[in-house]
Design a protein around this nucleic acid. Structure first.
Lengths: 344, 344
DNA sequence: CTGTTAGCGCCTTCAA
DNA sequence: TTGAAGGCGCTAACAG
């Protein structure tokens, strides 16, 4: 059991044992359009089982020119937003016999570039980039160029988030979702709002803020610029931003955090300051993260069907490439819960 | 931009452009022990950049015999338990230049077998199996045999959970953790307990139950067998089990759910039945899932350093193989929070 | 239907 | 230090 590495059985071993040629063995074992006589085929299969043969995927890929690997790049797999997307990608990939290779870029755009290059080296079938783009023209240009190389050599690229580059995209309608949320909140009686936004250069966060603002404008809510605080797109970011908001004093009756994990941080901040929930300040988030559906009070949010989003990305990968990049729009749905009771 | 696939630059293209031999190009571009004259090397590198060259990983792997890919198999990536482990694996892997390929087995042991075989085909450097073993001797035997094949051809296998097979293992001390938790809870004044356990054949769940029982025995708590309910290892399983417990009536003052997500489901059940929290029934979980740290009341649990566990697995992958499988023990730490107030 | 053979791109002896 | 050449395992023409 602790022997040195023994080379595994090759197709030639199988062919020899079955007494057939390499080609016949190949044709009967690994998918080929060509037919093989039933008796020979049986002998080959038996021999393969006997030798515990497994095709060398590297060699297959080399001969065929491309692999069945799909690279998935996420900002942070420990973030439930991305793990949900990943689950969808992996489920759909499995259904179609694709292997998923995954990497966490830890929000470093540089990392994304490196991984795309690595995937090109792997001759990956496709790369799926999940996660918000950042407002950095130079970075975007470099990514675009890297993806162009990737596609030029026959790979497919799919982005999940904003449509910023000429590649297939699953476009998340953050703006429309946030707008609808704002309108609902005004409908509950709120007039003065605050927003805990993510980093200024993160487009997802920016879109949600812009959508929220336009919803307020349409429905008649107010958002004092001093009530818009930026912080990191995490639970701790929400905690910190909310704390600052309370410290500086605010007359807002409702706080919109740009995603659910920030909202949870905001709720923690309220509790730390002895402000009950639901109470003086209502809180809403965005995403409807499954794991957070049981927090109390229930968090009002905009539901994004994240697993479906992941599956949609794989679906795009499988579509034959058209003459123009495809865009799949996914909209969010407002879900009102107890964290935003009607203002009486 | 929408051209047909153009073969990417090969090492030969680079060599030709640099006016050197293939061997020299190889030696100066991709790590080799042999030296190359500084001037030639420079020319080669320049040519590579010029052509946007990236080594074909498949071809390299074929020539070298093995890849830098580590396969990670989890039960369900959307479960925060596994996404935390995955985060640790990916972080550590990146630090060592390893690529992570990941698959969700959706708790089907058969799937695990298939993936290990696929990874053997990929000539993966290693496979990491995260997730509880199941009590099924036949399945275990087949997995053992598959892993043996994998290791026989030079790969490394690491399991995270129980030590059930002769491979390197990161062993989670579920039993000891649950025992310590039981003792702490008795220390808070509880005497009569209930346990919401996972599927009977899931060893992690079983170990936690056994550890909890032994802790009660040592500290003087009681666990009526009728107060031990099985259900799936998920939030909904916890909800369902807790509901059944309440329906059948119970005199327990404290409920131990075999993991945090079940505990959250249990809390939801209590709320549904109008039982406040914290209140008549205390609730404790296991894992200390980061995303759940903000639920109210704070959930008493046993903290497992899941990211470190993932990193430890990669560390084992990198260790030279010894004559006997290595075992890395990881213990849990009891964290008391408001969901289990002292019983007055 | 079956067999033969030429690569796929790279690494690595072996010679020079 | 550099170059030439064999082979890694498999697929896909091309013959038979």
């Amino acid at each position: 059991m602790v022997d040195q590495a023994v080379p595994s059985a090759t197709l030639m071993d199988v062919a020899r044992l079955a007494g057939v040629s390499l080609a016949t063995a190949s044709r009967s074992l690994n998918g080929s359009t060509r037919q093989v006589g039933e008796d020979l085929r049986r002998r080959v299969v038996l021999a393969a089982v006997e030798l515990n043969y497994t095709a060398n995927a590297q060699a297959q890929a080399m001969a065929r020119g491309r692999t069945d690997v799909v690279g998935l790049l996420v900002h942070d797999i420990a973030d439930p937003y991305f793990s949900s997307i990943a689950a969808g990608v992996m489920r759909a990939a499995e259904d179609h016999g694709l292997l998923v290779t995954m990497a966490s870029t830890l929000r470093r755009p540089e990392s994304e570039l490196d991984y795309v290059a690595a995937l090109r080296g792997q001759r990956a079938r496709a790369v799926v980039l999940a996660g918000s783009r950042v407002d950095d023209p130079e970075m975007l240009r470099r990514l675009g160029s890297e993806l162009a190389s990737f596609e030029a050599t026959g790979g497919r690229a799919v982005m999940i988030s904003q449509k910023k580059l000429p590649v297939d995209t699953v476009l998340l309608e953050n703006r429309a979702g946030a707008k609808a949320l704002a309108e609902s909140l005004v409908g509950l009686g709120h007039r003065r709002f605050a927003v805990l936004s993510g980093p200024r250069d993160l487009l997802t966060s920016r879109d949600r803020l812009a959508g929220f603002q336009s919803g307020l404008a349409a429905a008649g809510g107010e958002l004092d610029p001093r009530n818009v605080l930026q912080d990191s797109f995490t639970r701790d970011g929400g905690l910190s931003a909310m704390t600052r908001l309370l410290d500086q004093g605010t007359d807002a009756t409702c706080v919109f955090a740009a995603n659910d994990v920030m909202a949870v941080g905001a709720m923690a901040a309220l509790r730390q300051q002895g402000i009950g929930l639901p109470g003086r300040i209502a809180v809403a988030g965005f995403d409807d993260i499954l794991t957070l559906r049981d927090i109390t009070p229930g968090l009002t949010t905009v539901r994004l069907p994240l697993e479906e989003v992941g599956a949609a990305a794989i679906d795009l990968v499988l579509q034959p490439r058209g003459d123009r990049p495809r865009v799949r729009r996914v909209k969010g749905q407002v879900v009102l819960r107890d964290s935003t009771p009607p203002l009486t």
